[in-house]
Design a protein around this nucleic acid. Sequence first.
DNA 1: CACTCTACCTGTGCGC
DNA 2: TGCGCACAGGTAGAGT
Length: 280
Amino acid sequence: MPELPEVESVRRTLVDGTPSLLGAVVLKADILRASVVDGLSVEQFQQRVEGATFDQIFRHGKYLFFRLKQVRGTPFCWMAVHLRMTGRLFLVSEKLAVVPHTRFVLHLEHHQVLRFDDQRAFGRVWLVADPAEVTSRLGPDALAIDKSEFLQRLSGQRRQLKPLLLDQSFVAGLGNIYVDESLFRARLHPLRSAATLHADERERLFAAVHGVLQHAVDCKGANINGVFEAGSFPVAVYQRNGTPCPVCGTLIVKLRVGQRGTHLCPACQSMNSIIAMSWG
DNA sequence: CACTCTACCTGTGCGC
DNA sequence: TGCGCACAGGTAGAGT
């Protein structure tokens, strides 16, 4: 499940790798599954991408945006990519152009290809004139947001912390793994209403989100049962139900919150303050 | 507004 | 061995 740290790791690899995607010219676009292209036809996608040059890449939340300098029509367009559950982007030799779950391949100069694989086929690619067409629906990037803005956005919120942090219009980039890890680090129960948080708990939440994401970026993402082989971020609670809490040794438990598996330490992340409030 | 549910996908792992 | 099924989860959109 690529979330902000994994997507950032992809971006850095494409920008800083050898060769870099920056400066690469698209010779040909092969779409192996039409549904990967969203909002325009495969033919339109090919027509606009072929001949174009990658000249900028940035990330917002879990989206990657690639600026393409075009040869005809408007000077630039943007290719937006969301990896969703199982999507992966690689810059590799054209000898490795297709594997069983390859969804599209952009053939580049020098026998390189940008390859998009996606076992579950939820991932999507769009072409937009302006990234704001996508980012306007999103909150600030969860790693870029500073404390004052985070606290400002948190004030007035009354929703439970788990669905709130998963909501990409609140902050963009957290998914199920890093929400559970952030709430564990903040010692906050996922069912707590944001309205019940004291000032010190609000600051703890910001510090936890920022600290978890920064650490995970430094680790090039997580490693869940070997799924993200590139990353080495050690999860404390995610899918670790039945194992001891790394802080207190209490067994990690799993709940369902909304439709999501939710993992926590029942001792470190107690609901005591809520119970105390209800006892008045 | 807040929430719940469904659809979109497919590999995995379980019980029988 | 193999079948059926629940499950994993990000997001959009519909419904309560």
